[in-house]
Design a protein around this nucleic acid. Structure first.
Length: 884
RNA sequence: GGGCGCUUAGCUCAGUUGGUUCAGAGCACCUGCCUUACAAGCAGGGGGUCACAGGUUCGAGUCCUGUAGCGCCCACCA
């Protein structure tokens, strides 16, 4: 027999078990014709990433699903991997090179720089994968993929070509979101709108040919006036009717620009006159198109002013220029007024600086045709969202979907496979790099220099990782996958697009269920972030409490899809539970000897009420865990196991069997011990998906020799467990009596060492016989010396009393009873019963209740009333005896 | 401007089909215990008008309407 240490030390076992599982090949999956598949694709973390609490939550949830499925006999495959994260990774390496070598990417050139990123990736990247392993997650590590690896790159290229050929990918000159730090275009989803306190500047624009007459415009972006090519008013605005057709002499620039009419202009906002900068604002761009205006780009890639602006402003940063323009207009007497103004400013998701609207040529995916099947799949219920409310968000986005800007002016990523001939202008997207132009035969062929948005590879993840576009066994077997677990903040970036890609390229849904997690916040409700320093390092938490404690604690506080306020102290709960389980196991194992058989249930004839009771509780626990996990109620299932283990098994059952274990009757001892082992085996199995390490460790001591490791064992069933209503009822009674005695003892501060005589009177013959049978339990658990049970008993002179239903209980407390305390106790009890009785009487006196409520409900109230009244009578009687 | 969510004990939160202890858990607090599995523990206890106002119902923490506060998402008002 294996001796367990007194406190559980996760450090001693966790790494060893992980290595063992990996060596045994438990993580790996291959298509099987005997088993049904269960497949989960990890949301690939950024290759630059470090493990956060968000990852802990997300990956533990997946591991719970996966480990349970594996135990249930599915051929289970959880595919891990990382995302190349274009902007983030490139920026990281650029920073690294700037800091270590004081160089920029341009010092290297494209090819060399990309090589440097690969070097960096090999050296520092994928840290998060190693960290995930510390968490114990059971991914198929042999199948790890990277969005920029060869296979996935091939899938990306195939998809691009297909969409290009269907003209669902096109190149267009548009106003896009431009990040002035990363120097690239961004998609709409990569822009975060933040509310800011800004100003609304009112400028006087001189009307040409009308000396001293001005048109006052209002703007939040003074610096862009250098690129103004019109002023617009609403056609219905009669304040300005006479100005239409006239023009403005643009101050500081001297350009003559027209005054135009456009419905877009809101007469009620500002002055009703708007400056139009078609190259720097999406609305102005539309107006520019409608009125055939000039498009003047006044900025460089870094949002500094370019050479088309007047000399003075050239090279200025946009905000520096803003100050200068305002000052200069003021000096000219053209600043009318400045108002405070709250407005939304778009920030670059990655670089956290305001984005610039920029007119440029980019590649787009036409989304509307892809959205249709994706909408249908979710709304028909083929794909289920948990919680369901995210369907609305999903629908809203897809119903108003806009084309996806997929080109990025970066070097790190999948290069756009579009080639043009410099001689004849031929252009095409190609699966293989062409060497000569198929039209004119020229060898002067250029590939587009941009790369694709990172999400353009992520949206293929559920099938590109399985080898698509090659057809193969993996793809046939594992696709469509089962569950996707992800945070709701990437519902547009990723979830919706994966569904679209699934239907477009595979003709089928990519997964059947989506579980949206909550966001992890700190106790003040703030998002966890590096800059706030409020994000605990999961590895430190693991070091302190163990991976199981972290995982289990996290699951226990992770309600269904709500944000989570996280504090490390909450993990203590998990740690305490692991230790409790450890010690319960230790206790059971201390009683094991060579004759003990693991995994058998004793003969029915040998089972005592307590055994039947714990087995009945186990049965309902297994059922509840199954039900809750089936509904993605991870926290409820975790709580089921906790309550059963701690409250039923440890606090009651183990205490109840001690006398048998310590006694001489081998048969009784065996029944108790084997029941305890049976229950414990089921507990560790139920808990294994949540806490894989400790359960594997304990399992080794309670498994039969021929049994496999717990990770690949069978999920608990209730097949061998019979419900036992009698045992539950009987134990309930015994536990109530024990608690009543304990309460008296505690309230009278009887020292635990002191045993007391107890008299129990009243009740039915049946009740008394139950108590008589279980007398030993009461003696042991309530520290009773002599116990007498009779139909009627006389209250001992110096005693304290309690009432349990129609039973009265006297605890004889010579020398310890405090009459005043006892009086107070009973008065409180009496008041409590009187209150309850009053409530029920009120109900039963209500004619409507009696006539309209279901019979069983009414009957239940009547029973309750009768019971309470009986209890009250006994209480009053005893109180009367006390008073005299 | 639309949409979603939250409000239950001092704190963090459960509460699934309206009705069996449905007013709960953990932490914190109070009392007593190093009782040979566990002080990361054991036994007992105090503590809440379920945000507010209406409504439906025999019956509402639970369903409906409205209000307030907080939070999030989406949207081109300069």
């Amino acid at each position: 027999m294996k001796e367990l240490s007194k406190t559980y030390d996760p450090k001693k076992v966790e790494d060893a078990w992980f290595t063992h599982w990996e060596t045994e090949g438990y993580f790996h999956s291959e298509p099987s014709n005997k088993k049904a598949p269960f497949c989960v694709m990890i949301p690939p973390p950024n290759v630059t990433g470090m493990l956060t609490m968000g990852h802990v939550l997300n990956n533990t949830l997946q591991d719970v699903l996966v480990r349970k499925a594996r135990m249930q006999g599915f051929e289970t495959m959880w595919l891990p991997g990382t995302d190349h994260a274009g902007i983030a990774t490139q920026a990281r390496v650029e920073k690294h090179i700037r800091e270590t070598e004081n160089k920029t990417r341009h010092d290297f050139g494209r090819e060399k720089f990309v090589e440097r990123i690969w070097d960096w990736k090999d050296q520092y990247g994928g840290m998060i994968i190693r960290q995930l392993r510390k968490l114990g997650v059971s991914c198929d590590w042999e199948r790890e993929r990277f969005t920029l690896d060869e296979g996935l790159s091939k899938a990306v290229r195939e998809v691009f070509v297909q969409l290009y050929e269907k003209v669902l990918i096109y190149k267009g000159k548009r106003i896009i979101n431009w990040c002035p730090v990363s120097h690239t275009a961004l998609s709409d989803e990569e822009v975060i709108h933040q509310e800011k306190n800004g100003k609304l500047w009112h400028f006087k624009y001189p009307v040409k040919g009308e000396d001293g007459r001005y048109l006052v415009i209002a703007t939040t972006r003074p610096e862009t006036m250098l690129g103004d090519t019109a002023v617009a008013v609403n056609p219905k605005d009669d304040r300005y009717t006479d100005l239409v057709g006239k023009s403005i002499l643009l101050p500081l620039v001297g350009r003559e620009i027209p005054i135009v009419q456009d419905d877009y202009v809101d007469m009620a906002f500002g002055t009703g006159a708007v400056k139009i900068t078609p190259a720097h604002d999406p609305n102005d761009y539309e107006i520019g198109l409608r009125h055939d205006l000039e498009f003047i780009n006044i900025m460089n890639e870094d949002a500094s002013m370019n050479e088309v602006v007047p000399e003075k402003y050239k090279g200025m940063d946009r905000y520096e220029c803003r100050k200068a323009v305002v000052a200069d207009l003021d000096a000219l007497g053209l600043l009318d007024k400045i108002e405070d103004h709250i407005h939304k400013v778009g920030y670059s998701e990655r670089a956290n600086v305001p984005v610039e609207a920029r007119l440029s040529e980019q590649w787009f995916v036409k989304m509307e045709p892809l959205a249709k099947p994706a909408l249908e799949a979710v709304n028909s219920g083929k794909i289920k969202f948990n919680p369901e409310r995210w369907v609305k968000t999903y629908n809203h986005w897809l119903e108003n979907i806009r084309d996806w800007c997929i080109s990025r002016q970066l070097w790190w990523g999948h290069r756009i496979p579009v080639f043009t001939c410099t001689d004849c202008g031929w252009e095409s997207a190609e699966r293989e790099d062409p060497t000569i132009c198929p039209v004119c035969g020229s060898k002067r062929i250029k590939q587009d220099s941009d790369v694709l948005d990172t999400w353009f590879s992520s949206w293929l993840w559920p099938f590109s990782t399985l080898g698509w576009p090659e057809s193969n066994e993996d793809l046939k077997y594992y696709y469509p996958t089962n569950d996707l677990v992800t945070a709701p903040d990437i519902i547009f970036f990723w979830v919706a697009r994966m569904i679209m890609a699934g239907y477009e390229f595979m003709g089928e849904l990519p997964f059947k269920n989506v579980y949206f997690t909550g966001l992890i916040r700190d106790m003040q409700g703030r998002k966890m972030s590096k800059s706030l320093g409020n994000s605990p390092d999961p590895l430190e938490v693991i070091d302190q409490y163990g991976a199981d404690a972290l995982r289990y604690g996290m699951m226990l506080i992770a309600p269904k899809g709500h944000d989570i306020l996280f504090d490390t102290s909450q993990i203590e709960l998990g740690r305490n539970f692991m230790n409790k389980l450890w010690n319960a196991s230790r206790f059971v194992l201390m009683n094991v000897d060579e004759s003990t058989q693991m995994g058998i249930l004793p003969d029915d004839a040998d089972l005592e009420t307590a055994d039947k009771w714990i087995l009945a509780k186990l049965k309902s626990t297994i059922e509840s865990v199954d039900k809750n996990l089936g509904e993605y109620r991870f926290n409820d299932a975790a709580k089921d196991i906790y309550d059963f283990t701690w409250n039923n098994f440890c606090d009651w059952y183990i205490e109840l069997i001690k006398s048998r274990l310590y006694g001489d009757d081998a048969r009784k001892k065996n029944a108790a011990l084997h029941t305890a082992i049976y229950v414990l085996r089921n507990i560790v199995k139920l808990l294994h998906p949540y806490a894989p390490f400790i359960t594997e460790e304990i399992w080794q001591s309670v498994k039969a020799d021929e049994e496999k490791d717990i990770m690949v064992s069978d999920w608990p069933t209730t097949d061998a467990l019979k419900p036992s209503a009698n045992a539950v009822k009987e134990m309930g009674l015994v536990m109530d009596v024990i608690t009543a005695i304990r309460t008296i003892r505690s309230e009278m501060t009887v020292p635990p060492s002191k045993k007391a005589d107890v008299l129990i009177g009243g009740g039915s013959v049946e009740t008394r016989s139950i108590l008589q049978t279980q007398a030993e339990y009461m003696s042991a658990l309530a520290k009773v010396k002599d116990l007498s049970i009779a139909e009627s008993v006389d209250k001992p002179e110096l005693s304290s009393s309690a009432v349990v239903g129609d039973l009265e209980i006297f605890v004889s407390l010579e020398g310890l009873i405090d009459i005043d305390k006892e009086k107070e106790r009973l008065e409180k009890e009496i008041a409590s019963f009187e209150g309850r009785i009053k409530g029920i009487k009120g109900k039963l006196n209500n004619e409507n209740f009696v006539s309209r409520a279901p019979e069983n409900v009414v009957q239940h109230e009547r029973n309750k009333l009768a019971n309470y009244e009986e209890s009250l009578a006994l209480l009053k009687e005893n109180y009367g005896k006390l008073a005299k």
